[in-house]
Structures are given as structure tokens and as C-alpha cells.
Design a protein around this nucleic acid. Structure first.
Lengths: 183, 183
DNA sequence: ACCTGAACACCGTTCAAGT
DNA sequence: ACCTGAACACCGTTCAAGT
């Protein structure tokens, strides 16, 4: 039983398809990017993509995973910024993929794979807040406050205001929190 | 020059098309609803819709306008609720059209008409806050706080948590504000 | 196991033609 | 002015067939 007759190993070809899709999804948008266009960029026929990915949404999930994996080092560097600056940094960074974020929200009810990816992502964000921060008002609800932060940042990303308004909103957002707890 | 040879007056037929589209957009989603399907529901051929609306996005804008026009009385009744309850009420109400809201955000960069509608909507929301509310912390930025409210409510709508978590987030949100100013 | 050519069942939109 | 039948140029996905 042959295991691999390809010119390229499987992982490499998958990565190529993901890279082509990522570039086009970000530049042109998910809906505006046809499978043919991605196939062309990766120098295969459209139906070849379906050997590697179940459908277009599965390809999007793979792109999202790869993007957040690749940007982890950058996020760790940003962790040294003070709170309002960190929010501003995050908003400006996510604005580059605001179209993709809107697409995820829009397709959640049509794609189970995307719904699961999205749930996992928000679980990670919630965990991040629980682990590192504490409320200035100890009586408050931490999860509720963390959601206010997360949703406001999402809103800033999708609504793209000017830099000054963005900054003022991030400052108002940071005002309820103490810096990360030291151990 | 004949002005009107229709069986029905223009406004009535427009309203019929909007009603058919609204029902299907909400129940099946915007992308999942084809122009053919809307035409069928309104007993015309697909291309007839293009006599009344420039394209599918223009039809969506008409649906949005009609929906918010029709729900004004309900919103005025809800204005008598205390702050956190009012947020909860709003979130639960908007959740019924969360798919449409996600679609608006997703299509803003592809449709100028939709982008304009969205900008106008947020301008109205901002005006509402400036007119009726004041901050508990007078030093704070009112526009920034209003955006935090608006974006958090949007986030609650699109992320649909359980009732208890929704309520706690609305309470945390309300804690920053005093009741509307009396005149 | 991997990839293709050709087809399937759509889609939003346009346009010449009717009344 | 209003509406249609037919077509246009797509789309995501499937499938039998090749190697």
C-alpha cells in the first residue's frame, strides 16, 4: 500500500494552499475569493483543494488557526505594554483582518466547524482574563467585565474609527482594571 | 405619458417585496435567500425585483429601514424600563435579527448603500446617548462610554450566551451610568 | 493516494422584447 | 411604465476516470 506518491509531502502542500487562501481571504475577502482563484494561486485545479479540505469553511478554519499560531510571538511581546496601549495595539492589529472576523460571525450559523473554532477562541480569551487580571472593584463580576472588554475590542475592530477616538475608548475600557497580578 | 398602469400602486408592491424579503432574510439568512425565492414569495419573476430595487443590498437596506420604523413604538415603551433591564430587553430583541446584523457588518466593504445605512444607524445611537444620559464619573469621556455600551450590546447579540450571563453583563454595563436626565 | 476534466445545480444580474 | 423569458458569467461541490 503506497503512502505517499506526491511530488511534495502532504504538510507542505497543505501549507501552500493555506498560504494562498490566507492572502486572498485577507486582501479580497472570503466571499469574493472563489475556490478557482485559490486553486490558480496554488497552481492546482479547484477540485484538488477538496482532497485536502472538506469545504471552503474548513479551509477558512485552517487559515485562522495558522494566523493565530504564527502571531503568538508578537502577542507575547505586546504583553509588556501597559493596559490601554495593549488594547490599542490589539485593535490596530485585528483591524487588518476585520473582514475575516466579520465573516466568522456571519457564517457561524451555517458552518459547524466555524462555530466550534469561534467558541474555542472566546474560551481562550476568557481564560486569559481570568489568569492574569483582577478587577479594581472587588465586588464586580469578572466574567462580565471580561466580556465587556472583549466585545468592545471587537466593536472597535469592526467599526474602524479614527485613532484618537479608538484611544479614548481603550482608556475608558482600561479604567476598571488593575495591572496583571504578579506571582 | 402614462404614469401608473399597474394592478397595484407602486408603494404597495414595494411593501410586498420588502415584506417577503424581510421574512426570508430573517428566517433563512441573507445569503441563503436567493432573489428567485423572494420573487416566488411575492409572485413575480426574479428580474421584476430589479425594477423596484437596484440590487440585493438595496433590498436589504429597505428591509432594515422598514424593520426599525415598525419597531419604534416598542422601543419607546421599553424606554420606561430601568437601565440594566432595558439593555437586556434590547439584547433579546436584537438577537432575533442577529444574523442580519452580522450580514450588515460583513457586507459593509462590498456595498456603499449598506455602509451608509450603518453609519447613519450608529450616528443615531450616539445621539440618543448624548441627549439622555450622563456619566457617573464626570471626568470620563461620554462618547467613549457610549461606544462601550453600543459595542457590548452588539457583542451580546451576536454571541448569544445564556440569560444569566447576559443579565450580569448588562448589569456591569449599567453600573457606569446615571439614569436619564430630567428636563 | 493523489489529482484532473467535465459536469451539476445553483447564483445575482442584464437585456431585448412584450404590453 | 412595468414586467417577462432567456441568457450571461459566474459559484461551490461532486464524481468517474486517470496515474
Amino acid at each position: 500500500m503506497p503512502v505517499n506518491r506526491r511530488a511534495q509531502p502532504e504538510a507542505e502542500k497543505r501549507a501552500q494552499l493555506i498560504a494562498a487562501a490566507q492572502k486572498l481571504f485577507i486582501r479580497e475577502g472570503y466571499e469574493a475569493t472563489s475556490m478557482s482563484r485559490i486553486a490558480k494561486a496554488a497552481r492546482v485545479t479547484p477540485n484538488t483543494i477538496y482532497w485536502y479540505f472538506k469545504d471552503k469553511d474548513a479551509l477558512l478554519v485552517a487559515v485562522l488557526d495558522e494566523m493565530f499560531r504564527a502571531s503568538r510571538p508578537e502577542y507575547q511581546k505586546a504583553a509588556s505594554l501597559a493596559l490601554p496601549e495593549r488594547y490599542v495595539w490589539l485593535v490596530e492589529r485585528l483591524r487588518k483582518i476585520s473582514g475575516l472576523i466579520a465573516t466568522v460571525h456571519n457564517r457561524i450559523h451555517e458552518s459547524e466547524a466555524l462555530a466550534q473554532w469561534h467558541a474555542g477562541f472566546h474560551a481562550k480569551v476568557a481564560e486569559y482574563f481570568r489568569a492574569g487580571y483582577r478587577l479594581k472593584t472587588p465586588g464586580g463580576n469578572l466574567d462580565a467585565e471580561a466580556r465587556i472588554i472583549a466585545y468592545t475590542i471587537e466593536g472597535l475592530v469592526t467599526h474602524d474609527l479614527d485613532a484618537a477616538a479608538t484611544r479614548r475608548t481603550c482608556e475608558a475600557l482600561a479604567a476598571r482594571w488593575s495591572p496583571p497580578t504578579e506571582r
